[in-house]
Nucleic acid binder design. Sequence first.
DNA 1: CCTTCAAGCGGACTGTGGTCCGTTTTATTC
DNA 2: GAATAAAACGGACCACAGTCCGCTTGAAGG
Lengths: 209, 209
Amino acid sequence: MQGEELLRVTGDDGERTDAARNRRLILDAAAEIVATCGPERLTTDAVARRAGVGKGTVFRRFGNRAGLMHALADEAGRSFQHAFMAGPPPLGPGAPPLERLIAFGEASIERMRFDGQILRAAEQQGGPDLDHPTQQLTRLHLFVLLRGLHVTDPELGAYQLSAFLNAGLLLHLQERRGMSNARLIASWRALVSALAVDADPRRTSPGPL
Amino acid sequence: MQGEELLRVTGDDGERTDAARNRRLILDAAAEIVATCGPERLTTDAVARRAGVGKGTVFRRFGNRAGLMHALADEAGRSFQHAFMAGPPPLGPGAPPLERLIAFGEASIERMRFDGQILRAAEQQGGPDLDHPTQQLTRLHLFVLLRGLHVTDPELGAYQLSAFLNAGLLLHLQERRGMSNARLIASWRALVSALAVDADPRRTSPGPL
DNA sequence: CCTTCAAGCGGACTGTGGTCCGTTTTATTC
DNA sequence: GAATAAAACGGACCACAGTCCGCTTGAAGG
């Protein structure tokens, strides 16, 4: 016990077994409530009660309500994440960058039909969490693709593009403004194509890369 | 009293004199608190107390905390609004659309130094208010300029561009990521130039820039 | 002036997010 | 298996946004 304290690793992730169990209980309870009443009806009290844990436990695990929502959204989005990182082209690796960018936008837009509500709930409250791992992963993905297109400032470009793909905006356009996915996708395609063309005028559209 | 009830117009805006007086008291109190402690420290209780009115009055006037913030932000941004609608070019009318777009982005980015905090406070909480009059005005402005560039879908283009100019994102890039305004502006310029070029390839940038 | 009544007022009240801290559990070491 | 300390637990507690409703004010008609 003379320096072992720092290495008290036990579970999968340095998480105690009771902690892991409670995380799952909370996540399941939250998912159930969201499925039943929608994300905006989810209260931290209700989650704690349903999971059979104290309120403090919920906050210890997830930080705050938004954190819980993010965790939920991440579970829902895990397959999407896998699809664009390791799935078949054009979304996954193998296709040229511009095609992958277009496919990424399309997939993000169409995904809203299923995960939009939760994603929106996760991103509001204290402004979008630009530092959240999932957000960072999305931006990294966009960054790599933009760099592949020789865009001047791919880092900022990734911010610009992801700003448009946020759930609050897309859902507003789809529901409030009644815009079709086809239109949203066309506009996305125009945007990324413009960036690509501007970066290297010889390369029009997905053309021969 | 036989149908006159609908026309009970008295103040400037159909607002009773005591209501108008209280609106000013509240707005002034709020501005003072923001100046003293920053926007995140502003509580509706404190505003009401300082203004010497009841809490209900604050909510009657402004709907909610975000509404109050918006009102504050609008007051701060009135001169900016005037500048891009009726001021001298290139921000105001007179310059070609692309130059005005670039100038608009520059001004928005530089404005964050002064109004960023309040703007961010106004736009968070329930997601950005895409329906707020000020937001609509911004998008209308962008829409007209994009249409002037013969962009395919200027309406969506306006949404795309304004998504990037939101205070939460810009402040994050400036403060958290330490990005210079010069870099942000360069990226904005690249973005709108790309859209312009894509819409009409003959028109490369605004000449040799 | 007096009456009338819609608009406005205010502050007690409620619901919910988030904190705090004394107690309990868990893993490790001997 | 007992001792130990860190980690986790839980629910009372607090702060703050937003609501509700009985009371007041002020504009307009008589």
